[in-house]
Design a protein around this nucleic acid. Sequence first.
DNA 1: CCTACCGATCGGTAGG
DNA 2: CCTACCGATCGGTAGG
Lengths: 263, 263
Amino acid sequence: MATRPRKRVSDTTPVARRAHSSASIDETDLANGAGQQRRREEIFAAAAEIFHSKGYDGTSIQDIASAVGLLKGSIYYYIDSKEDLLFGIVQESHAAALDALADLRADSAPPLAKVVALVRRHVEVFTSTRIESAVFFREFRSLSPERQDIIREEGGLYTEYLRELIRTGQRRKMIDPALDPKLATEGITGMLNAMSFWYHPDGAATPVEIGWEFARIVVTGLASSAYVAEIGGRDALLDELGFPTPARKRGRVRPGPSPSNGR
Amino acid sequence: MATRPRKRVSDTTPVARRAHSSASIDETDLANGAGQQRRREEIFAAAAEIFHSKGYDGTSIQDIASAVGLLKGSIYYYIDSKEDLLFGIVQESHAAALDALADLRADSAPPLAKVVALVRRHVEVFTSTRIESAVFFREFRSLSPERQDIIREEGGLYTEYLRELIRTGQRRKMIDPALDPKLATEGITGMLNAMSFWYHPDGAATPVEIGWEFARIVVTGLASSAYVAEIGGRDALLDELGFPTPARKRGRVRPGPSPSNGR
DNA sequence: CCTACCGATCGGTAGG
DNA sequence: CCTACCGATCGGTAGG
């Protein structure tokens, strides 16, 4: 809100300033490069929050300017267009998802274990970048076609990875051969991404609980009956995949806020 | 859908007109009540399509006026506000969903069979009211709080019904007792509603195929291991629930259009 | 030359 | 349904 003193003119020289910069962050430093970067982040964070609550098209630059205590025109010192804000937010969420993908690739495990890891990790990424990820999912189409392509090119690897995981699982007789990998992937990612319509950190379910719950439904939904029989039943499968036993559950989840739209 | 002609005022003059109305639709009729109603529907249909492709906030009344060949101001002869258009569209989708719910309630069947019916019916309703349902799901929050409440009040019955179905299934030992009914319901409805981000009638998968696929994943994801064992395995369960056998599948589903956002 | 904005206004469009 | 507009606000930009 309160903008820093315009200039701390001539605090001797920059070198001298840096000399007495004893601990942590120096106010004088912030007036320059670091402060600018900080302001930038503040603007993007405010934009994310307002895009999330009012939608991209429903948000004006004035809304964002008001939130950070600047005049509308001053926002354009930091960006070239409103869409830059959306793109930056989408990239944040996107980067987090790509990190997750890289980790999943690095981990060598059987297909179903990887599906569990993917679902749980997706929930974790989604909840830890909640605002940005919801804006990604809901406002993606407001990006320019060129920027959509940029994101889609890398992001396609994510769904492709899950699809390939399902195909591999089918080849190894671990996943139901009757399933269509593409449709199943749409269903799973849809279930995960739809969290942007109902998830709220104040809700009763924790990200970890949601992750296990969704993974449980997905993995039992995918597993082939042959494999389930071979491993000694569904509970044995879940055990092996590291699912918490029902005994470990601490009470029922109470209804949370944000009733979405009733469907 | 098509409401009857507003008024059949004085069946004399209209009769005369109707006399020379040789075949099908009479132009003179259209100039009055029926034509007005038809224009109204044309406007709502155009609005639904444009809201769907550009988003509610991204759509101007001028966009809709151009699409139907009117001047912007003339649209307000048919509606009082832009939001009326959204509300009308939402109600169309909503009414279809409530019809489905009524049918599901009327049908007495065991919980898992009802889950299958619900999932398949939801996909059918969603795909047959594709534009309206996608607008419902994506633009719901742009309705006024009062109108959101109107929809939510009845619409909440839908998710409530699924949640209760899951609870009943758990009591009857047919559904995995470890599942949280509320989270499972969010997962299932999320998976279904997320169709608004990828489904397209030109896609490779037909609504019926999608319905069976999602129902298969959901029902095997929900079923308790005890019940599956009791009935003689997962395949026996699916058989009893009327799922098509893999043999009946006609070739793999090819990738469709609309790559959504890569997740 | 730079950082960090300001006050004012651009051409257009919003819903009504 | 059209013509003729309104108050306000839209995203974005001017010079300083």
